[in-house]
């Protein structure tokens, strides 16, 4: 099951990446939650990318990282930067999402009290991720895991096709 925003084809397959790296994220604990987001933000800051793009990329990474910490056994964040865009993928091994449409609804949440204590779990994470991305795709398989792909434009004319 997949839900798309903005486009229906793989936007990046034909473009050479200028930077790519993968960061492991530990599931089931908040001990290091946000650590990868801080790292990615610092990396992007050093790349002469506009502040706004860096902020949006850090934001969608952070919400994704919180999701992996909250719901998955383990996962990773893959960062790819080209002159046209920043792509962030959050790939986890975990329970998966039963109903993606429902999960995308603002206010819907399956969060535990522990997640809520941290200031999350109000059913806004995926909405924030979608709203701050230029392109967003979510796929999930029950019992296996979830894959988010977010693209943020650096070049305003980049249309993703």
């Amino acid at each position: 099951m997949a839900a798309w925003k903005g486009l229906t084809t793989n936007v990046l397959s034909h473009e050479p990446a200028i930077y790519e790296n993968s960061f492991p994220v530990e599931g089931g604990t908040y001990e290091n939650a946000g650590h990868v987001s801080s790292q990615i933000k610092a990396l992007l800051k050093g790349m002469k990318i506009s502040k706004e793009v860096v902020r949006r990329a850090a934001l969608v990474t952070y919400e994704s990282e919180i999701n992996i910490c909250s719901y998955a056994r383990s996962g990773k964040i893959v960062l790819q930067v080209t002159p046209e865009h920043v792509t962030i993928e959050a790939i986890d091994e975990g329970q998966g999402i039963v109903d993606i449409e429902l999960a995308m609804q603002e206010g819907y949440s399956t969060a535990t009290d522990r997640i809520r204590e941290m200031g999350f779990g109000a059913g806004m994470g995926l909405c924030n991720i979608k709203n701050f991305s230029d392109f967003f795709r979510i796929t999930s398989e029950i019992g296996k895991g979830t894959h988010l792909k977010m693209v943020i434009r650096i070049d305003k004319d980049f249309d993703g096709i």
């Binding site: 908040y30 939650a33 946000g34 987001s37 801080s38 933000k41 502040k51 902020r55 850090a58 934001l59 952070y62 919180i66 204590e117 941290m118 200031g119 999350f120």
Partner: peptide, 16 residues
């Protein structure tokens, strides 16, 4: 904010 956990700091870092 009235929250005091480390995620408040992470959130603040993400947003400058």
């Amino acid at each position: 904010t009235g929250l005091t956990n480390p995620q408040v700091i992470r959130t603040s870092d993400v947003l400058d």
